[in-house]
């Protein structure tokens, strides 16, 4: 598993891919960040004109919108990380090498997943300086920041599992990424359907399945067992199905 993990990392870093992705992610997040800061500044100025001290809820005005925007970036970022994991091996024919090396499919899968996960967390970590920068203007609620990042990481891990699954279905990385983004958007939007389609059991089930619905509490600074378990199970499900797909490919040759 370690060897697969290291190999995948070597591959991620063998091209400008990683830094280009990190640059785009952090750059766009930076724009969102500045936008939120500028708005907060406006609010604070307005308030100081009417009332005495310019106090605002930094969590509500800056952190929450920033993390909301970042969650959208994450669901676009992660499929780009996950797309190559299996599709590339299939296109190059190296699946066959992996199949004959003395490691189980599960270990290969976990090695790949963890490598993708590490790359994702690393890129996400680059954005950490944004909240650190806030300290020049105010005191952000570090608890909320911590919980939000926890939520983003869990959600990203889930999307990554979905992406690995999509990648195992095809030898074409672009298709893998497209399928992942499509799938994630469907799960993302389930909560909206739940509100309009039905309010019975179906609605409840749809809402519980919604990827976005489980994020909001993290962004409020609240980590609940339910949300954590949801993301973990979601990831486990897609990893298990991926294992099944790999088995199928092995039999089919």
């Amino acid at each position: 598993m370690r060897s697969i993990y290291l190999k995948e990392l070597v591959q991620y870093f063998s091209s400008p891919f990683f830094f280009v992705l990190a640059c785009v992610f952090v750059g766009v997040a930076g724009v969102f960040f500045y936008n939120a800061v500028a708005y907060a500044n406006l609010l604070a100025t307005q308030m100081s004109q009417y009332q005495a001290p310019g106090g605002i809820s930094v969590s509500a005005v800056i952190l929450r919108p920033l993390f909301m925007d970042m969650s959208l970036l994450v669901i676009l970022l992660v499929p780009l990380i996950s797309m190559r994991l299996y599709a590339e091996e299939k296109a190059a024919g190296t699946m066959e090498l992996l199949f004959t090396y003395p490691v189980s499919d599960l270990k290969v899968l976990l090695g790949k997943y963890l490598a993708g996960f590490s790359v994702f967390v690393l890129i996400l970590a680059f954005s950490g300086f944004l909240t650190a920068l806030l300290a020049v203007a105010t005191t952000p609620d570090w608890g909320v920041v911590l919980a939000s990042y926890t939520g983003l990481i869990l959600m990203g891990g889930t999307v990554l599992a979905l992406g690995v699954f999509a990648s195992s279905l095809t030898g074409n990385q672009t298709i893998a990424a497209a399928v992942t983004i499509g799938g994630v958007l469907v799960f993302w939007a389930l909560g909206w359907f739940a509100d309009t389609v039905s309010s019975g059991y179906l609605g409840a089930v749809l809402r519980e399945l919604s990827l976005a619905g489980h994020l909001s509490r993290f962004f409020n600074g609240l980590i609940t067992l339910k949300d954590v378990v949801f993301y973990l199970l979601f990831a486990v499900f897609f990893l298990a199905v991926t294992l099944r797909v790999l088995d199928f490919h092995r039999c089919r040759g």
Binding site: E208, L222, I223, K226
Partner: peptide
Amino acid sequence: YLTAMNHDMGWDLSRSKEN
């Protein structure tokens, strides 16, 4: 998941205990 839902618990990390 249902078990987790029924035994749900939360950790409020926010400083102002908003949750």
